[in-house]
């Protein structure tokens, strides 16, 4: 794989996020970090908070195992002018905070008639491929998409995770920040042979990355986010190198609300005959399903005579197995993504 570093010194996703956390805390005394096991020397289960409690002992709070209260506390902090960043150790536990996200954080600003703001960020790692089994491997973000008032953003190794986190903290509204636990150790790189362009708008502030082949329109497009970005990129490279098929890659950072204006901009550039949507969760009632619907609505409006073949590619519609072989078989791989696309040509 031909790649180029985005900075002079190779940086991992984890380093980018950890550095951003340090910058945020140093730059704004309203930033409070809370979560389970985040104090040094442990520094958090995945080490994103490492070093913070040593440098900012008064504003880094290790909590009991109380995810509902962690997000509830963050809600109270945000209502009173602080900038809380809450960590939920495993994304699977976000269900325990669902009431705080859906019935409190997401509603306050609107139901209190714009008299308050809830600038809250809930960071949490999702995803499998680590052998953690049914309750520590899921990608549950699809269950919190489409909640009015709640943003969901996902960093990835082809973008700038730290900047995305800073952007999330700067937003006046609650953001669930979905990290990929298998991507923490990945270096931030972009493939040199693809042209990269970012779309960001005032309405949809989290950037969509569009990676295109040079010269001529592509045979297809893959949409993906987060931990599926490297998997989908590998599929793109396979299809090009092995099968001679040119597939563009779109990596979305704003999972909710759907960045409709970004999708419009992409479709205005050209409408591909095949679009795949690669996500790690099962694709039933998922992120890709919402994108298919949105893209079809846009297509019907701007190109009523054209048609697109849509392809959702996700994990098995079962819990995630602890067995390594079973887990890897059930989660979408680069081979699977490439094979499914190949069937369309």
């Amino acid at each position: 794989m031909s790649t180029k570093d985005m900075s002079e010194r190779p940086t991992t996703v984890l380093q980018s996020l950890n550095a951003a956390m340090h910058r945020l805390m140093a730059g704004d005394s309203r930033v409070v970090v809370l979560g389970e096991d985040i104090l040094d020397p442990y520094g958090g289960a995945f080490k994103v908070t490492r070093g913070l409690s040593t440098q900012f002992p008064d504003r880094v709070l290790t909590t009991p195992i109380s995810e509902g209260a962690i997000v509830g506390l963050a809600n109270g902090l945000a209502l009173r002018g602080m900038r809380p960043i809450a960590e939920i150790m495993f994304g699977d536990f976000v269900t325990l905070a669902a009431d705080q996200l859906i019935n409190h954080a997401a509603k306050f600003r609107w139901m209190y008639n714009e008299q308050v703001r809830v600038p809250l960020v809930v960071r949490t790692p999702m995803g499998g491929r680590r052998g953690y089994g049914p309750t520590h491997s899921q990608s549950l973000e699809k269950h919190i998409l489409g909640v009015p008032g709640l943003w969901v953003a996902a960093p990835h190794a082809l973008g700038d995770p730290g900047s995305l986190l800073e952007q999330s903290v700067a937003l006046e509204d609650p953001v669930v920040f979905v990290e990929s636990k298998v991507c923490y150790g990945r270096f931030l790189t972009r493939p040199a042979e693809l042209r990269a362009e970012e779309i960001r708008t005032a309405r949809s502030p989290f950037p969509t990355l569009h990676l295109t082949h040079r010269g001529g329109s592509p045979d297809g497009v893959i949409f993906c986010y987060g931990g599926m970005a490297p998997v989908a990129l590998e599929a793109v490279e396979r299809l090009r190198d092995v099968d001679g098929i040119r597939v563009d890659l779109v990596v979305v950072a704003q999972l909710s609300p759907t960045p409709t204006d970004h999708l419009e901009a992409l479709l205005q550039r050209g409408i591909s005959e095949v679009i795949a949507y690669a996500e790690e969760a099962s694709s039933s009632a998922g992120w890709g399903a919402e994108l298919v619907a949105t893209i079809e609505e846009i297509r019907a409006s701007i190109a009523p005579r054209r048609s697109i073949r849509h392809l959702r590619i996700g994990g098995a519609h079962t819990p995630i197995a602890s067995s390594k072989e079973m887990e890897l078989h059930d989660l979408p791989s680069a081979e699977l993504v490439a094979e499914r696309l190949l069937e369309c040509f």
């Binding site: 506390l73 109270g76 409190h104």
Partner: peptide
């Protein structure tokens, strides 16, 4: 503030106390 969810308001109020203490 008030909300119609039983129990859910209690950690929020505790977070308000935390904010005021930090301030």
């Amino acid at each position: 503030y008030s909300n119609g969810i039983q129990g859910g308001i209690v950690p929020v109020a505790t977070g308000i106390a935390l904010a005021e203490k930090l301030k």
